[in-house]
């Protein structure tokens, strides 16, 4: 098995692990971590695609590599936004939760709480 295929299998496993974390862990910060795992799994799939596209004297196809670099930066920005939201939520409520009914209070109640 080539190291590229191996990396691809790790990527697949990371997507599965991350997905489990996203679904099963109720804490937003843990979900953000899990999202980053899925992200790196996806990037690894791009990585083996790039490696298997070695040609023309290059040891990997540059196009998917460029996409991964773009993806890593976007993933960081997404993490930053999610972290900022989580922290603000924690400051406002003393807890960080994604409970669905947290959003169903009428606005006048919310104004009182503030």
């Amino acid at each position: 098995m080539s190291s590229a295929t191996l990396a691809g299998l790790v990527g697949a496993a990371l997507v599965g692990l991350g997905l489990y974390g996203v679904i099963a862990d109720p804490q937003p910060l843990r979900k953000i971590l899990a999202f980053n795992l899925i992200g790196s799994g996806v990037f690894l799939v791009f990585g083996i695609v790039a490696r298997k596209g070695a040609a023309a004297g290059l040891s990997a196809d540059p196009v998917p590599q460029a996409m991964v670099i773009t993806g890593i930066v976007v993933a960081f920005a997404a993490s930053a936004l999610a972290v900022a939201l989580t922290l603000r939520l924690f400051e406002e409520t003393g807890r960080a939760t994604l409970r669905p009914d947290a959003g169903t209070k009428p606005p006048d109640d919310g104004a009182d709480a503030e």
Binding site: G16, I23, A56, V63
Partner: peptide
């Protein structure tokens, strides 16, 4: 999650060793 990971792993294993590439055009 196991299902997703397994399907992905299977497809990754099926990818040809010499895949399509844009390296020459680049």
């Amino acid at each position: 999650c196991l299902l997703v990971a397994a399907a992905l792993a299977a497809v990754v294993l099926l990818l040809p060793d010499q895949g399509p590439t844009l390296a020459p055009q680049s």
